[in-house]
C-alpha cells in the first residue's frame, strides 16, 4: 500500500525536479558565476549600482503604494460582501472576479488604449473641450495597472477571513459594551488579520516582480526591477547578471511567504 503510493508520486517528483528544482539551481549557478564560469558575488552586488538600486527602490515603492491602495479599496468592499446574503453576494463576488478570467495582457493593453495621449479618456476630454491629461508612462499609470490587476487577490483573502468570523463573536463584543467602532478595532479587524496579511503578500509579490504592467503602461521611460531582469535575459543576454538580480528579488518573496505562513494559519490566501 505504502509502496504503491510512493510509486504514484514519482511522476510528480520528476516534474518537480525537472521544472522547479533544476531551474532554481541553474538560476543560483548563473547568479554566482561570471562568463568564464568562475565564482563571483558581483552579479548579486550589482543591485547596489545606482541604476539597479533605483529600479529596485521604484519597484518597492510602487508595489507598496499599490498594496496600500488595494487594501484601502478591498477591505470595505470585503466587509460589504461578507454582510450580504448569499444570492446577491455570489453575483457581486463574480463581478469582481470576472476580469481575472480575461487574459492578463489583454486587460493591461485595454488600459493602454484608455490612457494613451490619443486614447479614449483624452478623446472624451477633448470632446468636451477640456485639457487632455498626461497619464500614460507615469508611475501613476503603473500603480493603476497594478491595482486593477491585483485587487481581486486582496479582496478574496480578506473576504474569506471576514465570513469566517462567528456573528455571535461580533454580537458578544456589542453585548459587552463596545460600540460599532470599538467592535471593529478590537474584534473584527484583529480577527481578519490573517486575510489581510495574505492579501498583502498576494498583491505585493506579483507587483514587485511584474515587468508586463510597467512595460505596457510605463513605456520605456520607467524601469522597474522586473524590467531590468527581463532586459538582461532578452536584450543584453547577460544571464549571470539577470540571475543575480533575481536572487535578490527572491529574498523579498521568501520574506513575504514566511510572513504569510506565520499569520495566515487558516489558509485564507489559499482559496484562490
Amino acid at each position: 500500500m505504502n509502496n504503491k503510493r510512493k510509486l504514484l508520486s514519482i511522476p510528480y517528483l520528476l516534474w518537480a525536479i525537472v521544472f522547479i528544482i533544476i531551474p532554481l539551481f541553474m538560476v543560483v549557478y548563473y547568479g554566482i558565476t561570471d562568463k568564464t564560469g568562475a565564482f563571483t558575488f558581483a552579479n548579486i552586488a550589482a543591485i547596489a549600482t545606482a541604476e539597479h538600486g533605483k529600479a529596485l527602490w521604484l519597484s518597492v515603492l510602487l508595489s507598496f503604494m499599490s498594496t496600500v491602495v488595494c487594501l484601502l479599496l478591498a477591505y470595505p468592499l470585503a466587509m460589504i460582501l461578507s454582510k450580504m446574503n448569499i444570492a446577491s453576494n455570489s453575483f457581486l463576488v463574480l463581478i469582481f472576479i470576472l476580469p481575472m478570467w480575461m487574459n492578463f495582457l489583454l486587460r493591461t493593453l485595454a488600459w493602454l488604449s484608455l490612457l494613451e495621449k490619443t486614447g479614449v479618456i483624452n478623446n472624451i476630454l477633448k470632446f468636451f473641450g477640456l485639457p487632455t491629461m498626461n497619464i500614460i508612462n507615469t508611475p501613476g499609470a503603473i500603480i493603476l495597472g497594478m491595482v486593477y490587476n491585483f485587487l481581486p487577490f486582496m479582496i478574496m483573502p480578506i473576504y474569506n477571513a471576514l465570513v469566517k468570523i462567528d456573528p455571535n463573536v461580533i454580537n458578544a463584543a456589542r453585548d459587552l459594551g463596545a460600540g460599532p467602532f470599538k467592535t471593529f478595532t478590537k474584534v473584527i479587524f484583529p480577527l481578519s488579520i490573517p486575510g489581510v496579511i495574505s492579501g498583502i503578500t498576494m498583491v505585493f509579490v506579483p507587483a514587485l516582480t511584474t515587468f508586463v504592467i510597467s512595460t505596457i503602461l510605463g513605456g520605456n521611460k520607467i524601469l522597474l526591477i522586473g524590467n531590468v531582469i527581463e532586459l538582461e535575459f532578452t536584450t543584453t543576454g547577460n544571464w549571470h547578471l539577470g540571475s543575480g538580480l533575481s536572487m535578490v528579488l527572491m529574498v523579498f518573496i521568501v520574506i513575504s511567504m514566511i510572513l504569510t505562513a506565520i499569520f495566515d494559519k487558516d489558509g485564507e490566501g489559499s482559496m484562490l
Binding site: 462567528d166 455571535n168 463573536v169 454580537n171 458578544a172 463584543a173 459587552l176 484583529p190 480577527l191
Partner: peptide, 13 residues
C-alpha cells in the same frame, strides 16, 4: 444586561 452565547463566542485572538 449580558449574553452568554451558544458555542461560547470567545475572542480567539
Amino acid at each position: 444586561l449580558n449574553t452568554v452565547f451558544q458555542k461560547y463566542a470567545l475572542f480567539t485572538h
